[in-house]
Simulated assay, not measured.
Amino acid sequence: MVHTIGNENNTYNPFIIAKNKDIEIRYIDFGIENYGQLIRIEDSNIILLSQLIKGMKKSFFIVAHELGHYVLKHKNQVSDARVRDEFEANFFAAE
């Protein structure tokens, strides 16, 4: 799946892939609790990133992780499924 997305976008850069998929990226103050989050509002998707990681290499992994949630169609859940979803999003980002 990751290779297909990379080939479709001619890049593996998650910032460019998000832009190509019309996913807006916004930097906000999460404090130290969180580095990123995918939110869905009606037909819009937004990746929120912590201002603490702006310009850092870590931001590429965080955006890729949030793209994983988007591509894998994860829902925001509070259950055992959330643990699985986080593992899958990490695996997607690592690929």
Rank of each mutant, 00 (worst) to 15 (best):
I53Y: 06
K75Q: 10
Q77V: 15
E33N: 01
E95M: 15
I39T: 07
I17K: 06
T11L: 04
K21C: 13
A93C: 03
L48H: 03
N20M: 06
E42N: 12
V83H: 08
Q77H: 12
V71S: 09
I17G: 08
A81T: 06
D29Y: 00
N45A: 11
T4H: 07
A81R: 11
T4I: 06
I25E: 01
I53R: 05
A64V: 03
D80C: 10
E66H: 03
Q77C: 09
M1D: 14
A89W: 00
T11F: 07
N13K: 06
R40L: 10
I16W: 06
G36T: 01
F61G: 01
N45Q: 13
N13C: 08
N76T: 09
G68Q: 01
L49T: 07
D80V: 13
S59H: 03
V83S: 08
I41T: 08
D29H: 01
R84K: 14
V2N: 12
A81P: 05
R26D: 04
D29K: 00
H74P: 02
M1Q: 13
G36K: 02
R84P: 02
K73H: 13
E95H: 14
A64P: 05
E95S: 14
E88G: 04
A64T: 05
K57F: 08
E88D: 14
I25A: 05
L52N: 03
N34A: 01
Q51I: 09
I32L: 02
N34P: 02
I46C: 10
E33Q: 01
D22N: 15
F87E: 10
K54S: 06
G6C: 13
G55Y: 01
H69C: 05
I32R: 00
I46G: 04
R40H: 13
A64G: 09
L52F: 02
N10C: 08
E42W: 07
V2D: 10
K58F: 05
F92E: 09
L38K: 10
I53W: 04
D80H: 13
D80F: 15
I32C: 01
K58L: 12
F15K: 09
R40D: 11
N20P: 08
E88T: 04
G6N: 14
T11V: 05
I62T: 11
E42S: 13
Q51N: 14
L67N: 07
V78D: 07
Y35G: 00
I32T: 00
I17Q: 06
V2E: 15
Y35W: 03
S44Y: 10
N9G: 08
N45D: 09
N76E: 11
F87H: 09
N20L: 12
I16R: 11
